[in-house]
């Protein structure tokens, strides 16, 4: 295979190869069918770029998320304070605690916290039910708090992120230490970026090895 790289986005096959491909193209008919060599119309090329952009934007872990133990921890830490205990009703307590936690989380590296708390209010009773679990997780320090899922009044470790390893041995018996913790905005996004880039590189190599779209096979030569 002869390559040429002077105009990689135009044509990568050598001149003889391209011509030979076109000649072959013109000389055979597949069951009476033949193919044109047109480019994807430019608006569709932009559409594909837009699709890739949209795919990443719409799947950012912003939508459809629920708060985890990390988001409720400030509430749990504050719930026994005098300021809270002096409030009369459960509603008032929760109003105070939510505002408190939202202020605490406003400066965190993960900016989703305040919004999540606002969209998923929790009752005083539920908070009391999850509080022991959150305190235990805080003292044991075994996993990051964000690993603990909270649904209703239940708390559970339901996180798979980062494979667990023994002494760095990927294939050994797993222990409880996560080998790798992903940042909040990367839930499979990096691996996706790699995969999509790989696809487009391969695709460009494939299509640019074809005769350039400016050369049209001459169908009148077809027998």
């Amino acid at each position: 295979m002869g390559w040429k790289f002077d105009k990689p986005l135009h044509e990568m096959a050598s001149e003889e190869e391209s011509t030979a491909m076109l000649r072959q193209w013109e000389s055979e008919k597949h069951g009476g069918l033949w193919e044109g060599n047109n480019r994807l119309p430019l608006p569709f090329t932009y559409l594909i770029a837009l699709i890739v952009l949209t795919a990443f934007m719409i799947t950012m872990p912003i939508w459809g998320q629920r708060p985890n133990a990390e988001h409720y921890a400030p509430m749990v830490n504050e719930m026994d304070s005098a300021a809270v205990q002096n409030l009369a009703t459960d509603e008032e307590k929760m109003k105070y605690l939510t505002a408190f936690a939202m202020k605490e989380l406003a400066t965190a590296s993960d900016p989703r916290g305040p919004g999540l708390l606002e969209r998923h209010p929790i009752t005083w009773d539920d908070l009391q039910n999850i509080a022991p679990g959150i305190r235990e997780a805080q003292t044991s320090q075994k996993y990051p708090l964000a690993f603990y899922n909270i649904v209703g009044d239940k708390i559970a470790l339901a996180n798979f992120e980062g494979n667990r390893t023994v002494n760095g041995d990927f294939f050994g018996e797993p222990t409880n230490a996560p080998a790798r913790v992903q940042p909040w905005f990367d839930k499979g996004m990096i691996i996706d970026l790699f995969y999509v880039s790989y696809f487009f590189i391969v695709l460009i190599l494939i299509t640019k090895r074809l005769p350039s779209f400016t050369r049209k096979p001459d169908m009148s030569k077809t027998s």
């Binding site: 072959q24 691996i191 074809l210």
Partner: peptide, 25 residues
């Protein structure tokens, strides 16, 4: 080497590679 891009061996290897990577992930 004319029409190398259309030969079925190269294509089959490409299909295997693409599907293999996808299944790996």
């Amino acid at each position: 080497m004319a029409g190398q891009f259309q030969k079925h061996k190269l294509g089959a290897a490409g299909i295997g590679g693409m599907l293999g990577l996808s299944m790996c992930i």
